[in-house]
Simulated scan of single mutants.
Amino acid sequence: MPRTVDAPKRAANLSLNSKVLDMAKELGMNVSATVDALLTAEVEKRYWERWNERNRQAIEDYNARIEREGLPLAAYRSFAKKD
Rank of each mutant, 00 (worst) to 15 (best):
A64W: 05
P72G: 00
E49F: 07
W48Q: 12
L16G: 01
E49S: 07
T4A: 10
A11T: 13
A37I: 11
L27Q: 15
R54N: 11
K81D: 08
Y76R: 08
A75P: 00
V31N: 00
P72I: 00
A64Q: 12
A41R: 12
R65C: 04
R46I: 01
K25H: 11
T34P: 02
P72A: 00
S15I: 09
N55T: 01
R50F: 07
V31A: 00
L21K: 04
V20Y: 07
A80E: 11
S18C: 06
T34M: 13
E42F: 09
A7I: 09
E26W: 06
S18P: 15
A41K: 14
P2F: 05
V35F: 05
N13K: 07
I66E: 06
R68A: 14
I59S: 13
A74M: 10
R3L: 12
L38P: 04
M23L: 14
K9D: 14
R54E: 14
T4Q: 13
D22K: 13
D22F: 07
Y76F: 11
N30W: 00
F79W: 13
M29G: 03
S18N: 06
E26S: 15
L16H: 02
V5A: 11
Y62R: 12
L14D: 05
A24Y: 00
V35L: 15
E49G: 03
Y47H: 06
S15D: 11
N55K: 01
G70R: 01
A11E: 11
R56P: 01
K81I: 14
Y76E: 10
E53W: 07
A64G: 04
R68V: 06
L21H: 08
L16P: 00
G28T: 00
D36A: 14
Y47S: 02
G70I: 01
M1K: 09
K19Q: 10
A41Y: 13
A11W: 07
K81F: 09
Y47Q: 02
R3N: 12
R77I: 01
F79H: 10
A37V: 13
A7D: 10
V31M: 01
W48S: 08
K45N: 15
A33M: 07
Y47T: 03
T34E: 13
A74R: 09
A58F: 03
Y76A: 08
A64K: 14
L71E: 04
D22A: 15
A58V: 03
A33V: 03
E44H: 08
A24C: 08
E53L: 09
A64M: 09
V35D: 02
Y47K: 01
P2K: 11
S78G: 13
